[in-house]
Write a protein that binds this DNA or RNA. Structure first.
Length: 396
DNA sequence: CGTCCACGTCTAC
DNA sequence: TAGACCTGGACGG
């Protein structure tokens, strides 16, 4: 679950479920993951988490057991000097598109659990890093990525610093200044006005905060099938009647009203998927199909959202929205597909068949702040938050 | 069955 | 600035 607020919630989840929980042994990595092994081993350790933007740091902290050093017992330290206790270790995670943490009974190891921390209890449990698409990364003894933007949850004030170097951005910020209210007002009045009439920068913070306060409704591995609260919260993303366009990076931007003067015009041909190189993980097959060319042009931004039009999603969404008993029989899951896909992910487990279909229609509406940020962000900067390096005046 | 799409980075041209 | 990296659900034929 990759959005900023969700990583924040993931961190809280880990700290909640792991509070007072003792872990033991080695950290186990799935065979298919290309991420590094985590060479940590301890008889007894605890786990805590720290969030920052779109990263979460797990700290593995060995616990000194005051009384438990019976000599014979320490046989389990493979490559470790028995005399020196294991050192604490930090592991920094990025979640990619689908990463999450989940604490489960050992008997219920989920599919795609690529990193596993075992508890010490008798029926063991496992804290898993679950990531079915495997875009997530972790780094042993990692630190926060240096060129990331500030955390919208914890470092919001940094967004107010560093006036962007380009004129238009400065103009915009000046415009925000000019919105300042009457200096004669009391502070509480000013705060109140600001709350009622938030500017762009204000929203960069308040939106993720709102998601965070949805709490378990938005991110909760225990009841991860229920996204209704989050969907209710969304105003544009996949909301019927809203428009969407693809930006220069091929990302679909949802919005209401006019797209603005910087809207993508040309609509270049889409990315195509073709070659897939046979990985040890991949199901072989002949991947030599010609680049399927389809050039969807003409991004008529009025009309319906492009994505919805093409695939009838709008219908689907309206249907969902109207999914009340009064609407008569829907054919909804007319064909419940049960594909027994070759799950190479966790070969050693019999992947509990888990038939729930999770809704995919959930994501990052708060990201819509990027719409206003225009396309000119710093080259390499990751999109942790609205690191609005340039906010063209015209886009406001 | 094939195509398209999805909450994000990375890196090779 | 395109692909690459992945899995899997929805949909079209």
């Amino acid at each position: 679950m990759p959005e900023g607020p969700e990583l924040h919630l993931a961190s809280r989840y880990v700290n909640t479920v792991c509070a007072g929980l003792l872990f033991s042994g080695k950290v186990e990595k799935s065979a298919v993951s290309k991420n590094p092994e985590v060479p940590f081993e301890s008889n007894t350790y605890v786990i805590s988490a720290t969030p920052r933007g779109k990263e979460v740091k797990l700290t593995l902290m060995p616990v000194k057991e005051a009384e438990s050093l019976p000599l014979a017992e320490e046989s389990s330290t493979a490559g470790q000097d028995p005399d020196s206790p294991p050192q604490p270790m930090d592991v920094v995670f990025r979640f990619g598109m689908s990463g999450s943490f989940k604490l489960v009974p050992e008997a219920e190891l989920p599919k795609h659990a690529h990193l596993r921390f075992y508890t010490r209890e008798s029926p063991r449990r496992i804290l898993c890093f679950v990531d079915f698409r495997r875009f997530g990364r972790w780094e042993v003894q990692g630190t926060w990525q240096p060129d990331r933007g500030p955390c919208v949850m914890l470092e919001y004030e940094k967004f107010r610093l560093r006036i962007p170097p380009f004129e238009k951005a400065r103009t915009v910020l000046e415009a925000l200044q000019h919105r300042e209210q009457d200096p004669a007002l009391t502070l509480s009045k000013k705060v109140k006005l600001k709350r009622e009439n938030p500017d762009l920068l204000e929203l960069c913070h308040s939106l993720p905060m709102e998601v965070f306060h949805l709490g378990g409704k938005g991110y909760d591995p225990e009841s991860s099938d229920d996204f209704t609260a989050f969907q209710q919260w969304l105003r544009c993303y996949y909301v019927p009647g809203m428009k969407s366009l693809r930006d220069g990076n091929g990302r679909t931007i949802w919005f209401q009203g006019e797209p603005g003067p910087m809207a993508p015009k040309g609509k270049k041909s889409r990315k195509k998927h073709s070659r897939g190189k046979a990985d040890s993980d991949a199901p072989s097959s002949k991947e030599t199909k010609p680049p399927s060319k389809r050039s969807s042009k003409g991004s008529s931004s009025h009309e319906e959202p492009q994505g919805t039009k093409k695939h009838g999603r709008k219908k689907e969404l309206i249907q969902r929205a109207e999914n009340s008993p009064a609407n008569g029989p829907k054919k909804r899951h007319a064909r419940a597909r049960r594909k027994g896909s070759a799950c190479q992910d966790s070969p050693e487990t019999k992947a509990p068949a888990e038939g729930k279909t999770r809704s995919r229609r959930r994501a990052a509406a708060y990201k819509s702040t990027e719409v206003a940020a225009g396309g000119s962000r710093k080259r390499q900067a990751r999109t942790d938050g609205p690191v609005t390096t340039v906010i063209p005046l015209s886009s406001l």
